[in-house]
Computed example of a mutant assay.
Amino acid sequence: MVSMSALDTTTPPQKRRVPLWDNARWVAVTLVVIGHAILKLIGEADVAYALYLFIYAFHVPVFVAVSGYFAKSGASDARQMHRLLTDIVFPYLIFETIWTVLRWILGGKFVLDYSTASWTLWFLLALVMWRIVLPYLVVLRYPLIISIVISIGVGYLPNIDGTFALSRTLGLLPFFVFGWKLRQWQLTDTWLELRDSLIWRWRAGAIGLFALLYLLIGLNIETMRTLQVRRFLLYDEAYATFDYSAWWAGGLRLAVMLLAFALIAAFLMLIPRRTTWFTDLGAATMYIYLLHTFVLYPLRETGVLDGPQPAWVLPGMIVLSVVTSVLLAQPVVRRLVRPLVQPKARWLFRATATTPTGTIVLPHRERK
């Protein structure tokens, strides 16, 4: 789930932070960590695979939607373009370089390829593109419907792949637009003002939806494997690449997408509206997202999680994920790695803005 949008990149600094959204950010990014932590277990354990499918049905859509909620749909000014570079583009370049060097140190080839994002860095590339495209998309009459059509349509085009994370960017675009629409609908204010008695009625329905989803996944886990449902939940490849070349394959993406819209709403209903022990952690989403992969990388690459595992490993990985999410959000961690995660790079920017023709715009007091 993002101040920084889902990654805490776009919240206007002059606005008072709303606990609901900081709570949602931290829970969403913690689910991201859990999903990555249990990936190695899903091949051998049905219970791990069921949990994985359950989480992936909504956690990335939630993360994207929260990013969209705080995105600006107007023309970008100099300040916004500055933040786009310092909050997203520069961290992507820095961490892509770090991953390249790390793989080289561990015996791989040194291939510095910024067009192919390493592991979780695809989200930064996608976030840049979503924020650039949104102002153009929202001038159209039905931006959400158009984004859904784009997402479904791109699944039929095998030539659109992971280069610059384009397949995922277009595949997940509807959730970014959906998040932006949530703000236009002004549902947050309505939700925050509801009486607790009404809140719990809605939350009961949300709990029922999540329980039903988990039950259906758990009872049909072999069918889920056969149908390769996981591939649909990733939104990162054409249908034909995993043997869904029929014309109706896009209908399956639409079904998954509509379910995710409902789950986003249900997720936000279950998030505490008031300040909690983890509210402050929601302001450090970028740190958790970018750094947790370094914690999980040894477990992922050493083979320690390969093959059948004892029953305690799955809950152990969940606990490890939550602890990792908490620790990486601590002030001391943020101070240490801030130059990498939030590089200011003041030396790179000119002191004055320019017009579209390149003419320097002087401050008013300097004009003659």
Rank of each mutant, 00 (worst) to 15 (best):
R253W: 07
L258P: 05
M286Y: 03
K15V: 00
Y49D: 03
P12Q: 10
A24R: 07
L215H: 14
A262L: 12
L53T: 05
L106S: 02
I88E: 03
A28Q: 01
A65L: 12
M1L: 04
R195Y: 14
L102N: 14
M129Y: 09
L121G: 11
A283D: 06
L362T: 02
Y156P: 03
E96S: 12
D22W: 02
A246T: 02
T97S: 14
V322F: 01
A48E: 08
P308A: 09
S3G: 03
L51C: 03
M81I: 09
V322M: 01
D161W: 00
A211W: 00
V27Y: 01
Y142D: 10
L268I: 04
Q184Y: 06
V139H: 08
H82F: 05
L182S: 04
G155S: 13
M1V: 09
L336W: 06
H59K: 07
L187C: 07
A262G: 13
T120H: 12
V229N: 07
V33I: 08
F54V: 01
D196W: 00
F267E: 11
F349T: 12
V304R: 11
V128R: 07
W191T: 11
M81Y: 04
L336V: 10
A71T: 03
L124D: 09
W248G: 11
I221S: 04
I145K: 13
A45L: 13
V60P: 01
W347M: 13
R367V: 06
V47N: 15
G208P: 05
L125Q: 13
M317N: 13
V319P: 06
T293K: 00
L299A: 09
V62G: 12
E44H: 13
F242K: 12
L213E: 00
I199N: 11
P298V: 03
L198K: 07
W119A: 07
I148R: 08
L258Y: 02
Y214V: 00
Y297N: 12
N23K: 00
A50L: 02
F123Y: 12
A75H: 06
R103M: 13
L281Q: 15
F267Y: 15
P174Q: 08
T223F: 01
P143I: 14
P143V: 15
N159T: 10
L41R: 03
T285I: 02
G316C: 03
V66I: 15
I146Q: 07
T163R: 10
K344M: 15
R346C: 01
L31I: 14
E366P: 05
D189F: 02
L127H: 02
S67I: 01
R83A: 09
L102H: 10
V332M: 14
P19N: 09
T293C: 06
G307I: 04
L216Q: 03
A266P: 04
Q342L: 13
T97V: 10
D243R: 13
L259C: 14
V62K: 04
R79I: 11
R253T: 08
L172K: 02
G108A: 05
W130C: 07
V361M: 11
I360C: 04
R79K: 14
L172A: 07
R17W: 01
A204E: 11
V18T: 15
L187F: 07
L127Y: 06
V18I: 15
P315V: 05
L134E: 08
